[in-house]
Design a protein around this nucleic acid. Structure first.
Length: 636
RNA sequence: GGUCUUGUAGUUCAACGGAUAGAAUAAGCGUUUCCUAAACGCUUGAUAUGGGUUCGAUUCCCGUCAGGACCA
């Protein structure tokens, strides 16, 4: 997308790099000097002067590393309007810029690409602005609210790897939107009712005492008695049901029943259906059992959520919402959006939108998932009046959400155009798909423990005494921070849309493009800054003009990109943008660190510049990782 | 059968329609009297396929092939 021209017009009001003398307006709009916009405005001015009567929109791109310069102006699109060859245009504008722009130091033209080098003084001013702005990268309040729904677990089994991708994405997107100035409400709908939980309940009734096979007078198993987390305990019974049910069906098939019929008529399945009916009728004993098992699961989930640092502002329970939506069906019929078939079932025809006809209520008057979702979407809107609603849900539900949004538009809901399904692909293992039946599901709690252990093992190899002054609890905390950081980064650096492969060995790697690599850079910076403070060097105060090394210039340039990157990530709902940025910044810092000495620098101006720069990089890494929900250590 | 989606180094991932398609990993080589070597540098290696749109296509459009999901 091209940049809005009006923005450039506004920016022409800031004619030079000496922004500190400019009006308050400058500080409201651009707390940090924006070199890119300044040059874009300058190029517009140059076009006005050099090619009278021409105007348009100018957009710069970062210059590729192989070329000299920081910003590149591509001249090809302008050749027709300006009636000149690409190289000539580049030459003309470049020359004009060097003479007239306060921030442009030099230029070169390669095949119609005008590469612009920015003056060191301008970079230093940017660095000073960034260092002086504690909320650098956080955008002003927007007076708009967004609701993010994510996690939404079933209560019949513990969280697994796929849930982690969901939770991390939802949590991170919430943080990114908040940094973009939105009011964010995090919600979760717990799928706590239905056939699936009845299966666990039935299995618990059948096998839940230590005397289940004898006179059934034994003690009932509980999380305490078993030493299992509640969610794992209930998951165990879900598996027990599945086994018993399979065995029963197998027996029936062996005796000549057709498989499909056997699956429907197996006594265990009949019992489950009966239990569901009892639950729906409010049978006290059934409801009490349901409540007890679910409470154990919630307690287990709480531990996991706390462990991964995820929380919600509002948790909804499907048991309270599953009857919603029926009045919307009536409304839709009255409005002529839905129609009733002869068998009394209710449908909507979405063929115009390229979708199918869709059932919204069964002939017996019971609702389907769509009915519920219509109801809960309305309810959530009435609870919070969010300007936008986002669902973080796997891409197997793409079609479902297309239909849901289409129906709400047809119904004329005012919020219907501000709904978004943040769809993400499945997580595969190197051995293929995760399949619960084959026991290849990666449990979330186990995985976190494993990455933490791996971090601790790796640290023993690598740390070489660095952690000697850590207490045991400090070590434990650090390893957990590294393990969780590795895991979160691994799952979020990839475009959500894509199906991704989870390689357990790689996910705990501390080298290369990983969370711990970035965490290491932060610790490294902190170490230098501690030493500087010990030597009574100042980390604050204005940096005065000096010559910058290429790598220093690159670092300031990268820092200056951060706010825009946060904005882009907010528009695209893309934690991966932030992950990539953090890595790029960390890697560039390592190059800087390797090439130049900070504390040993004898030129005091340069020393101070490098300290301020290092501090700003450390802060920005911390903030960027914070948007991913990843903590960074002071030492490692 | 219909709809959606993905296809890039051996592998895992990048690339608002822009330059010589970037990283990481794996393999090999090198860097430490000096701020954390959990680091840095060098070498090798890729756009599934056939068309189209244009100054320019990994990116947009159409077909084929392959993986995945959903709908009936």
């Amino acid at each position: 997308m091209l940049r809005d021209l009006s923005l450039n017009i506004k920016l022409v009001m800031y004619p030079s790099a000496s922004c500190h003398s400019v009006t308050a307006l400058h500080f409201v709009l651009l707390p940090v000097m924006d070199i890119q916009s300044t040059i874009e405005a300058d190029i517009l001015r140059s076009i006005n002067e050099l090619y009278p009567g021409q105007s348009g929109v100018v957009q710069l791109a970062p210059t590729k590393k192989e070329f000299e310069g920081q910003y590149t102006f591509v001249t090809f699109p302008y050749t027709k309007a300006l009636r000149q060859a690409p190289a000539q245009i580049g030459q003309a504008i470049g020359t004009w810029l060097v003479e007239n722009s306060a921030v442009v130091r030099a230029f070169n033209v390669v095949q119609g690409f005008l590469n612009i080098s920015v003056a060191d003084a301008a970079w230093i001013e940017v660095l000073n602005d960034i260092a002086a702005d504690p909320s650098f990268g956080t955008h002003p309040k927007k007076e708009q609210s967004v609701m993010v729904e994510f996690s939404s677990p079933n209560t019949n089994k513990p969280l697994h790897l796929g849930h982690l991708r969901n939770n991390f994405l939802g949590d991170s997107v919430s943080r990114i939107l908040a940094a973009n100035g939105y009011d964010v409400v995090k919600t979760c709908i717990v799928n706590d009712r239905g056939v699936h939980i009845c299966k666990s309940m039935l299995a618990y009734k059948l096998f839940g005492t230590d005397a289940a096979t004898a006179d059934r007078s034994g003690r009932w198993e509980t999380p305490d008695s078993s030493g299992m987390k509640g969610d794992h305990l209930i998951g165990k019974y879900y598996v027990l049901f599945d086994k018993a049910y399979k065995a029963q069906v197998g027996e029936m098939v062996a005796q000549g029943t057709e498989k499909e019929i056997a699956e429907k008529t197996a006594p265990l399945m009949q019992d489950v259906q009966q239990m569901l009916r009892l639950w729906e009728q409010g049978d006290p004993e059934t409801v009490a059992l349901w409540r007890q098992l679910n409470n154990w699961v919630y307690a287990g989930f709480d531990v996991t959520y706390k462990n991964i640092g995820v929380s919600f502002d509002k948790i909804y329970y499907e048991s309270n919402t599953y009857l919603l939506g029926k009045e919307i069906v009536d409304e839709g019929i009255q409005k002529g959006v839905f129609y009733r078939k002869e068998d009394n079932s209710v449908w909507i025809d979405l063929t115009e939108e390229g979708l199918d006809q869709k059932l919204v209520m069964r002939s017996d008057g019971t609702s389907v998932y769509m009915t519920q979702d219509l109801g809960t979407t309305d309810m959530k809107f009435h609870d919070f009046h969010s300007d936008r609603q986002i669902w973080v849900v796997g891409n197997e539900q793409d079609y479902h959400f297309n239909v849901l949004f289409a129906i709400l538009r047809r119904l004329g809901r005012p919020y219907a155009n501000e709904l978004y399904h943040l769809s993400y692909g499945m997580v595969d293992l190197p051995t293929g798909k995760m399949k619960s039946r084959e026991g290849t599901v990666v449990d979330a709690d186990d995985l976190i423990q494993e990455t933490t252990d791996a971090a601790s093992t790796a640290a023993d190899d690598a740390a070489k005494g660095k952690l000697d002054d850590f207490s045991e609890s400090e070590k434990t905390a650090l390893f957990k921070m590294l393990g969780l950081g590795a895991l979160k980064y691994y799952l979020m650096k990839v475009d959500p849309q894509k199906r991704m492969q989870f390689n357990p060995a790689e996910s705990v790697d501390l080298h290369g493009n990983t969370g711990p690599y970035i965490q290491y850079v932060h610790a490294r910076i902190k170490s230098v800054l501690r030493k500087a403070v010990e030597s009574e060097m100042s980390l604050d105060g204005e940096v005065v003009a000096t010559e910058l090394d290429d790598i220093e210039q690159q670092l300031v340039f990268l820092l200056s990109q951060y706010p825009q990157r946060v904005a882009d990530a907010g528009v695209a709902y893309a934690p991966s943008y932030i992950a990539q940025y953090a890595y790029e910044l960390a890697r560039t810092f390592n190059q800087f660190y390797d090439k130049l000495s900070i504390l040993k620098e004898t030129d005091l101006v340069k020393l101070h510049t490098r300290l301020v720069l290092s501090k700003a990089v450390g802060e920005t890494i911390r903030k960027a990782m914070g948007l991913l929900g990843i903590d960074v250590p002071e030492k490692m």
